[in-house]
Amino acid sequence: MKSIVVALGLLTGVVQAHVAIDVCGEVVEFKQVPKRAIANDINMLKIMLALDLTANMAGYSGVSAHHKMPDELALTVKDLPEIAPKYPSMENLLNADADFYFAGWNYGMEVGGAVTPSTLAKYDIPTYAIKESCAHVQTRPHISLEDTFYDIDSIGAIFNVSGRAKVLNDGFKQRLAEVELRLAGVPSKSVFVYDSGQDKPFTAGALAVPHAIIAAAGGHNVMANVKQSWTRVSWEAVVETDPEHIVIIDYGQPSAAEKIAFLKRFPATQGVKAVVNDSFTILSYAAATPGIENIDAVELLAKDLYPQRFK
């Protein structure tokens, strides 16, 4: 990738990698392989685990306050401490002796907050921000699953495991190609993403990863004209689009079943095509945010939208 530059030292076998990566429009240099990395949120943590990087980690953050850790994942990270149940503070990161922070804007960092790439740089802690989240700090024209592949490639380069990252991404791309082949010629179905909220729904705009998942699954995000990431819209805007299918994001409370029950009893949404036809797909938070489960989400949604193509 043109925006991930690996220094000659890495190519000649020097242990310390030196890579320069475009992170939200800023070129960030990573001068050595991190040994005490912190990953925030379950999707970033899973990328680290998929690349077999637990030995390079000092812990993780932002999981227990929002998610019930699956048994298999809990076993994998049993020797890694959770340094904070929500966003970590600067004190949390310094106490962990962190030398790398893998997070994102609104995924462990807030614009104007105490923990940002610039504040961490004062303590020589480099940061990689998940690419989807860059929509909060720079103008982005679009999003695609190539952004997830970019994240995986970037983490692979930073930790000197580019080969592992390539194998992972090649497998994902092959699966995407198979879905695309099955969906050739299908009419695009309209899809609304319902994360949460009763007064106003919290949903995925054109710059959130479900937009890319929906497109890859042969659908059309009814909020494609909303040039934002995750955001709130009006129920009127949802009803006007009359989506044929609704994706429910499942995490915390209320449960996915409770969200569907709300849509069925809420007067504004009772008559929407998706609700009338009981046409829903439930995606976990980890599948609906940038990470290794995005392709699982594409396959699941595609099968729900076009079951006849997957018999």
Results as ranks from 00 to 15, higher is better:
residue 225 N to C: 11
residue 8 L to N: 14
residue 261 A to C: 04
residue 131 K to P: 04
residue 113 G to K: 00
residue 260 I to R: 07
residue 208 A to D: 14
residue 292 I to Q: 05
residue 88 P to M: 05
residue 35 K to Y: 09
residue 26 E to V: 12
residue 16 Q to G: 11
residue 111 V to S: 07
residue 191 V to S: 03
residue 259 K to H: 01
residue 82 E to D: 10
residue 277 N to W: 14
residue 124 D to S: 15
residue 275 V to E: 06
residue 56 N to K: 08
residue 28 V to G: 07
residue 249 I to Y: 05
residue 156 G to P: 01
residue 137 V to P: 06
residue 268 A to I: 05
residue 185 G to P: 08
residue 198 Q to W: 03
residue 310 F to V: 04
residue 277 N to T: 14
residue 83 I to A: 07
residue 74 A to C: 07
residue 114 A to C: 00
residue 107 Y to C: 14
residue 59 G to P: 09
residue 222 V to R: 03
residue 75 L to C: 11
residue 209 V to K: 09
residue 224 A to V: 07
residue 140 R to E: 15
residue 285 Y to D: 14
residue 199 D to H: 13
residue 4 I to G: 06
residue 84 A to D: 02
residue 68 K to V: 01
residue 15 V to D: 15
residue 298 V to P: 05
residue 148 T to C: 12
residue 293 E to L: 10
residue 298 V to D: 02
residue 133 S to T: 13
residue 155 I to S: 00
residue 84 A to C: 03
residue 301 L to Y: 03
residue 153 D to E: 10
residue 162 S to E: 06
residue 108 G to Y: 03
residue 70 P to M: 02
residue 244 E to R: 05
residue 27 V to W: 14
residue 259 K to V: 01
residue 176 L to S: 11
residue 109 M to T: 08
residue 98 A to M: 12
residue 136 H to Y: 15
residue 10 L to H: 14
residue 276 V to W: 10
residue 297 A to I: 05
residue 22 D to S: 08
residue 205 G to V: 12
residue 47 I to Q: 01
residue 60 Y to N: 11
residue 45 L to G: 03
residue 240 E to L: 11
residue 167 V to Q: 13
residue 174 Q to M: 13
residue 25 G to I: 13
residue 175 R to L: 08
residue 251 Y to N: 02
residue 82 E to F: 09
residue 214 I to K: 00
residue 2 K to A: 12
residue 206 A to K: 15
residue 45 L to E: 02
residue 241 T to C: 06
residue 98 A to C: 13
residue 185 G to M: 02
residue 117 P to V: 09
residue 251 Y to A: 03
residue 12 T to F: 11
residue 232 R to Q: 15
residue 179 V to I: 12
residue 164 R to D: 10
residue 180 E to C: 02
residue 33 V to S: 09
residue 131 K to C: 06
residue 121 A to V: 04
residue 167 V to R: 12
